[in-house]
Write a protein that binds this DNA or RNA. Structure first.
Ligand SMILES: [Mn+2]
Ligand SMILES: [Mn+2]
Ligand SMILES: [Zn+2]
Ligand SMILES: [Zn+2]
Lengths: 122, 122
DNA sequence: AATCTATTGCAACACTGTTGCAAATATAAA
DNA sequence: TTTATATTTGCAACAGTGTTGCAATAGATT
């Protein structure tokens, strides 16, 4: 996979923040640096490289966040918190839900999203 | 709130199944009984009446399910399971995630969605 | 510098969900 | 039963998210 201006900028943006970004937010921050389709494709590549992870936010929209403490294959096991006041979405990497499904189910993927008030808005 | 043909049919459909339905699935089953916008509005009304609850599926699309054992105000606290093989989405009303967020956060809403293989597909 | 292949831009599209407004209809009142 | 009225519906139009095909462009390698 090649490194390009768009890829570098998008990765910088995401890595420089502890927030998760939606496609629309990234597009706004980049201010016309590249086409919106490119953003989607770059995000896909960054995810394949294991540099970012994505998840479905509580409103159904995809969010992308840097991988910090994420261990290899369970990028998506931790909780994500959506503040209803300031709108920010944060990885709570230390928060993992404990649950028990009937043993006839085989769980492969987990999405655990919370919303409410973040520390800044409480 | 008035009872109408559309409302009755949609409620029957949802109540007669233990699966959760998307708007598109309901539209397909109703076979032109009413306009698609009406379906959205009926679903909204049924939710206000407490007869159904909605949640964001693991793919970001809204799903609607009947309220059976749902207790009053936490329709959305239980888990939902999306089978990657047969595509069905089921309420796991007995499955509630246990978690602990840093006390500076105030949680208001929870979305907990699992995907994998259901008992029929295991 | 030339080559090759991955990446990009563009246009077009599918899908989900929402809104305004006029017409239709369920329900309550006469 | 008929009338009045407020709710519900259909339609058209729209916004937002995400995807695809294809030709043009630009990284990387030689
Ligand atoms: Mn995360
Ligand atoms: Mn449910
Ligand atoms: Zn906040
Ligand atoms: Zn299944």
């Amino acid at each position: 996979m090649r490194n390009t201006v768009a890829k570098t900028e998008i990765l910088n943006l995401i890595k420089s923040s502890n927030q998760a970004f939606s496609h629309a937010e990234i597009e706004a921050k980049l201010e016309g640096l590249c086409n919106r389709v490119t953003i989607y494709r770059v995000l896909e590549r960054l995810e394949e490289e294991g540099q970012i992870h994505k998840f479905v936010n509580i409103n159904g929209v995809l969010k992308f966040a840097a991988c910090h403490d994420c261990t290899d294959h369970h990028h998506d096991h931790h909780a994500h918190f959506n503040c209803t006041s300031c709108g920010t979405v944060t990885c709570l990497e230390e928060v993992e839900p404990v649950y028990k499904v009937p043993k006839k189910y085989k769980v492969q993927e987990v999405n655990f999203t919370l919303s409410g008030l973040c520390p800044n808005c409480c």
